[in-house]
Every structure is written in structure tokens, then in C-alpha cells.
């Protein structure tokens, strides 16, 4: 941790090249998942686009806006907020710095009193992912792979964004294994639920102990505890946001990958090339915004024919033949 080079040394000396600044939520970086995916994108921006980059990880919630403002005031060309919680902060700062480009990953759209969607400020790009689509695919795979006909879900904080993962996953499981039992639990009620591996392990051990043999987590670094439980009990888990195979080799059935890194990189490239434009971007299977991992690492874990079946479902979703729910209707 200490050996990690500071942000300012990451980029070249501030010159004429447009600079990219990125702000994490409290305790975000190092989750090997969502936030680290954004960080990977930032590193690609530095290495491949040769743009100077800097990042800030605030210590408390009220600092999110302050951190964005500092970067904008220092003349950064693109300022990125990582997480839905940045929505209002990005909106506020973007209005004060109309010539700076802003991006918000998982931007939460607001609706006005008339029910219509309120568009973000013109210099903000709202990066939204259709996580339910990717979750549906890993759910379908879990349904095909389970031997006990019982699968589990561990969410981080209990919020609509994470329930979207659960909803897609449930629907996917129901598609390939209608009689499968589903256990869904959340690690907590505050942001800390996304960084509590101890709690993740506890939930994981509990679910595996109850007969579940595959758990999908959408819980930041809390999921590292779920993996630990999978390793200890010899069961399988499904990673989220990044390809998490390396966190527990042999125990990660697949990962629901969210293209946070690519989306950050793409926006930075647009800024560099001079054709950045604000607006809402909805990224799903069709846009390669979400995907499921199947490569040489996890090939041995996949049941015969599963790849073809899951890919067929992916195609069906892309064509609009399968509509994936975004909210959970089954009572918990």
C-alpha cells in the first residue's frame, strides 16, 4: 500500500495535455472489484493515451464534492466520480465548471415532478450499466451448474442498484433451473457493507452450510470473504464487476464483468480527441457494457454445453426476446 506511487507521480508534469482526475467513494479503492475496475481504466488512460492522471480517495462522505471541486479548480479536463453516490456531487460541481468534462459511473437518473427523466448537465456523461443482463447470464450458468439445486446471492448494501443484480440473477436461475432454491442476503445497511470481508465470509459459510453450492456476490470487497468461504468449504462463487478468478482460483465459476474500465477509458479518449459529449449512456450486453467470463481458467468448471446455452441467452437478450427484470418481486 505504502509503496504505491502517489497520483502526481503517475502522470507527467502538468503541461498542455488534458489531465484526467478520478474520485473514489470512501474506502473504495482496493476492492478488487468495482472501484479497482475504474482504477484499471485510469491506468490505461495514463499508459495508452499518455494523459496525466490523478486520483483522490476521500475520507468522508461530505468530501466527495470537495474532491471533485479541487480537481476541477486545478484545471483537469475530465473529472470522474466513481459510484452512484456521486450523482448530486457531480451535478453540483459540473454546473460551476461548465468547460470541464465530467463523468459519473452508475449515475442515478432523477425524475422530475412530471415523471420525466431529468437530464444531467450538458458537460456530464452519465455512465449506466444494465447489470441485470449480465447477472441474468451468470444466474443461468449457476442454474445449470448447481448440483444441490440451491444457489445463493450475497449483496453489499441493500439498495436498488444492488437489488438489480439480484433481480437479474434470480431470473437467470429460474430460467435454467425452475425448481432451484434461492437464498439472497445483504451484508448490511450502510456503505460499510461493501468493505466487510468478515461479514462476507460469515454469510458465505452460512449459505454453503445450508446446502447452497454456488454464491454470486455483488458486494465490493465483502465478496473476498465469500470467496474465502468457498475456498474453505470447497464450493463455487461468482465474481462481480472485474474478472475475479485470481482471487480464488478453482473456486470462481465465472464473473459478471462490468465494463467500468472501458467506459472510463472511452470517455478519456473522447476528451483527448476533442469530441466529448455529455448525456446518458446505457451500457448492456449489446454495448459490451456487461459480460460473463468464460476463458481457459474456468473452462474446467463449466458444465458441458453451458457456454452455448448461456451465449444463446445473451443473444436473445440482445435481440430483445428476453426481458430481464430490474427489481426483485419474490419476497425475501
Amino acid at each position: 500500500m505504502l509503496a504505491w506511487p502517489g497520483g502526481r507521480s503517475l502522470g507527467q508534469a502538468p503541461g498542455s495535455a488534458p489531465r484526467v482526475g478520478l474520485v473514489f467513494d470512501v474506502g473504495g479503492r482496493g476492492d478488487k472489484s468495482f472501484n479497482d475496475a475504474a482504477f484499471r481504466g485510469l491506468m490505461r488512460v495514463r499508459d495508452e493515451l499518455h494523459m496525466p492522471v490523478e486520483y483522490i480517495e476521500p475520507g468522508e462522505g461530505a468530501d466527495r464534492e470537495s474532491a471533485l471541486r479541487m480537481l476541477a479548480a486545478e484545471g483537469f479536463s475530465l473529472v470522474v466520480g466513481v459510484g452512484f453516490i456521486f450523482t448530486d456531487d457531480v451535478n453540483n460541481v459540473a454546473v460551476d465548471y461548465p468547460h470541464t468534462a465530467f463523468a459519473c459511473v452508475d449515475y442515478a437518473l432523477q425524475t422530475g415532478p412530471d415523471g420525466a427523466v431529468v437530464p444531467p448537465p450538458a458537460n456530464v456523461v452519465a455512465l449506466k450499466f444494465r447489470e441485470e443482463e449480465g447477472s441474468y447470464l451468470v444466474g443461468a450458468l449457476a442454474g445449470l451448474s448447481t448440483k444441490t439445486h440451491a444457489v445463493g446471492f450475497v449483496g453489499g448494501m441493500d439498495i436498488p442498484l444492488i437489488r438489480k443484480f439480484e433481480a437479474g440473477y434470480r431470473a437467470g436461475v429460474a430460467r435454467t433451473c425452475p425448481d432451484c432454491r434461492m437464498t439472497a442476503q445483504y451484508a448490511g445497511v450502510t456503505g460499510a457493507a461493501f468493505k466487510d470481508p468478515g461479514k462476507g465470509k460469515e454469510l458465505g459459510l452460512g449459505q454453503y452450510g445450508s446446502g447452497v453450492d454456488i454464491i454470486f456476490h455483488a458486494s465490493g470487497s465483502t465478496g473476498l470473504g465469500v470467496f474465502e468461504a468457498a475456498r474453505e468449504t470447497g464450493h463455487l462463487a461468482i465474481g462481480v464487476d472485474s474478472d475475479q478468478y485470481d482471487e480464488a482460483p478453482g473456486h470462481i465459476l465465472t464473473s459478471m464483468v462490468k465494463g467500468v474500465d472501458v467506459s472510463v477509458y472511452d470517455v478519456a479518449k473522447e476528451v483527448l480527441d476533442g469530441h466529448f459529449s455529455g448525456g446518458i449512456r446505457s451500457l448492456g450486453l449489446a454495448e459490451d457494457g456487461v459480460a460473463w467470463v468464460h476463458d481457459e481458467h474456468n473452462a474446467a468448471l463449466l458444465p458441458t454445453g453451458a457456454v452455448a446455452q448461456v451465449d444463446a441467452l445473451a443473444e436473445a437478450i440482445k435481440r430483445g426476446e428476453v426481458t430481464v427484470p430490474t427489481t426483485v418481486e419474490v419476497p425475501k
Binding site: 502517489g6 502526481r8 490523478e54 476521500p58 468522508e60 468530501d63 470537495s66
Partner: peptide, 18 residues
């Protein structure tokens, strides 16, 4: 220290301020 921690965040890990 809290606000300053933000200002030096890009130079050193934030844990130092903690």
C-alpha cells in the same frame, strides 16, 4: 487535517492522514 488530507491525497496514501 481532514480537509488537508484531501489536498495531499494525490501525493501520499490517505492512510497517512488517518
Amino acid at each position: 487535517l481532514s480537509q488537508g488530507g484531501l489536498a495531499i491525497n494525490a501525493l501520499v496514501p490517505k492512510e497517512i492522514v488517518d
